[in-house]
Amino acid sequence: MPDFVLWIAAVTLALTTISLLISRSWRWSIGLLALQYFATFWLLFAHWPLNMSASVLVTGWMAAAALGMTRVNIKEDPDADTSWPQGGLFRIFAAALVLMAISAATGSLSAWLPNIQLPMAWGSLILIGLGLLQLGMTLQPLRVILGLLTILMGFEVLYTVIENSILVAGFLSVITMGLALAGCYLLVLGEQST
C-alpha cells in the first residue's frame, strides 16, 4: 500500500473526527461516521487482507445505517445538548490540543509496535484521542455511541498491526454492531420517555 494513500486516509480521519466533534446535526454525524469507516478501511487494508478489511467497512456502515434509521424516526430534538461546554470554538480548540499531543506521541508508538506505519499510528491515535474528547463532552446516548465507535475504530487500526486472526476480526465486528444496536435501543427508550 503506497504511503500517500495511508496519509490521505489518516488526514480524512482527522477531518471527519474533528467535524464529528463539532457537528450539531445527527445527519452529518452519521455521514461522518460512515466516512470514518471508509478511511479506516484503507488503513486496515495495509495489514489485513481485503475480505477482512471489507468486513470492518461493511459492519461500520451497517452500524451507521442502524443508528441513522433509528434516529430518523425520533421526533425529539437531541441537538439540545445539555452537557457543558457547548461552544464550537471551544471544541475546535480542545481538538487542536489533542491533535498536538497526538502528533508528539505518534513517534513513540512505533517503539511499542515496530511494524506500524506513521500514518496508521497517527490516524489511530487521532481516533482514540478525539473519541475520548467526544465522550467527555456529552451525555447523549447517540453521541456516546459515536464516541465509543470512534475509539473502537482507532483500537482496531492499532490491533491489525499485531493480530490478523479471523476470530478477532469477527468479535470486533460483533462489538461494533452491538454498540450500534445498544445505541438504537437507548435512542428508542429515550423517545418513549417523551
Binding site: L135, L139, P141, V144, L148, I151, L152, F171, V174, I175, G178, L179, L181, A182, Y185, L186, L189, G190, Q192, S193
Partner: peptide, 29 residues
C-alpha cells in the same frame, strides 16, 4: 459483548438513559 448484552437489562423503559448506564457502558468498554 456480554457488557453490550446487559444494556437491555439495565435500561429503564419509558425513561431517559441515565448517566450511570452510559458510564457503565463506557468504563466497561
Amino acid at each position: 459483548i456480554a457488557v453490550l448484552l446487559s444494556i437491555p437489562m439495565l435500561a429503564e423503559a419509558g425513561q431517559k438513559t441515565g448517566r450511570g448506564l452510559l458510564r457503565f457502558l463506557i468504563y466497561q468498554s
